[in-house]
Nucleic acid binder design. Sequence first.
DNA 1: GCAAGGATATCG
DNA 2: GATATCCTTGCA
Length: 190
Amino acid sequence: MLVRDDDAGRRAGRIVEVEAYVGESDRASHARFGPTNRNRVMYGPPGIAYVYRVYGMYDLLNVVTEPAGQPAAVLIRALEPLDGADAMRAARSAHGRAGAGIGRLAANRLASGPGLVTAALGLDRSDTGTDLCDPASALRLTGPAGSLADNEILATPRIGVDYAAEPWRSVPWRFVIAGHRSASGSPRLR
DNA sequence: GCAAGGATATCG
DNA sequence: GATATCCTTGCA
């Protein structure tokens, strides 16, 4: 579970979709060019937030996962809103692009995409460096909320990495709770 | 199917 | 310093 505390109150959601990016050899990872100013935090200790911007308008949240010197991270692609759905809706409304026409959007779809997770929680690149394992952090991970059987987890190729060479383009490193309403994309990808 | 939008990495 | 590209989304 991912928890966010700020002026807007408490927002929390169950992580229902993630992608793994592993090491400099992963041609789809930001670490593929080695250490840069942007990906520096990936080379630090695990449990730290890495938030970067794509397409000029969306900030995406990742969790650094391996020991210092090993650049790996998990991209948080979707949440099932559990707490503070109203605050999530308000935050998205205030977000230029992700705020378009969400008036009638179902509550379970408020964070159904990597750019929408950060928009719903009010996160941006300044949240990079947050210790997600510190119970005192305004943004943190808690749990586990329970276990899942293998057949409840669907593994697919990662999204939006067509630029990468094989096998990185198609390794099944996107993991989603099978059939979950709050997962991103079309039903076919769930 | 495509535009919006700006930072990033690379090249000169 | 210029330019091609990008871990996306909503609307035509």
